[in-house]
């Protein structure tokens, strides 16, 4: 793999007090691929994402994005680097219309400063038009443009999930980190999500954290299995499925395969 174009996590460890949330975890995600991260509840999947976007500073280990070592990563820098993330749950802004929710996702593409915003003429207006158009296009792509003026809590869960995805996509990322995008979706919606992920993967790299094994097995080209903060298995879906360590890790845990 050409390391200049991917995200790589090398020997990353995170401790919360006495709890080892991540233990020397390494992972490589390449563009054009869907890299799955699976594991039982509390395995450290979200923590791994939190490290990859700067919410959590690793105690040791390095991140390399697009061939460059990343130090002191801050989450607000992420979109500018071309990495977008959705949150486990929804993370929508409940008192802002859907359109504004998505426009926030495009904000890193905007330039107008405070003084111009106060004056409110010229570039402020044209940029606002462009942000709006970009947000509408992202909503339209996911088939939810019709809900642009609604507040998120008024909408069915599956629609809200799509809005959250639109907010991540609107910044035109090179990489997309999806934290349980299928949770709470119906079989049908999940199928649609699988189609979308496969289609997106031709344009950008995706790291997918998911509990729904059929979805993971369908869309992922590579899978890392976490258990108690450690990578216990890695490989293609078929390899991972056949690995006895994986079945063991999931014993007692509901296996949705």
């Amino acid at each position: 793999m050409d390391s200049k174009v991917g995200l790589s996590v090398d020997q990353v460890s995170v401790r919360f007090g006495g709890l080892v949330a991540l233990d020397r975890v390494s992972l490589e995600a390449a563009p054009g691929e869907v890299h799955g991260v699976i594991g039982p509840n509390g395995a450290g999947k979200t923590t791994l994402f939190n490290v990859m976007c700067g919410f959590v500073k690793p105690d040791s280990g390095t991140l390399t994005f697009f061939g460059q070592k990343v130090h002191g990563l801050r989450p607000e820098k992420l979109t500018r680097m071309g990495v977008a993330r959705t949150l486990q749950g929804l993370g929508l802004f409940p008192r802002m219309p859907v359109l504004e929710n998505v426009m926030i996702g495009a904000d890193s593409l905007a330039k107008v400063g405070v003084l111009r915003a106060l004056i409110g003429a010229g570039p402020t207006v044209s940029e606002e038009h462009r942000l709006r158009a970009a947000a509408m296009a992202a909503l339209d792509r996911l088939g939810v443009a019709g809900y642009a003026s609604k507040l998120p809590p008024q909408l069915p869960y599956a629609i809200q999930k799509k809005v959250a995805l639109a907010r991540a996509l609107v910044s035109n990322p090179r990489f997309l980190l999806l934290d349980e995008p299928a949770s709470g979706l119906s079989e049908e919606d999940m199928g649609e999500l699988g189609d979308l992920i496969l289609e997106l993967s031709s344009e950008l790299g995706i790291v997918l954290v998911e509990h729904h094994m059929d979805l993971v097995m369908r869309v992922c080209s590579n899978i890392s299995v976490l258990d108690f903060g450690r990578v216990i298995a890695e490989g293609t879906p078929a390899e991972v499925k056949a690995n006895p360590l994986v079945t063991e890790a999931y014993l007692g845990d509901e296996v949705q395969a």
Binding site: R85, R95, E100, I104
Partner: peptide, 17 residues
Amino acid sequence: RKFRAVRDDEIATQVSG
């Protein structure tokens, strides 16, 4: 809009850059 985003959800605001 950024003011409102911070009001509604700080984590989602950060993730949005």
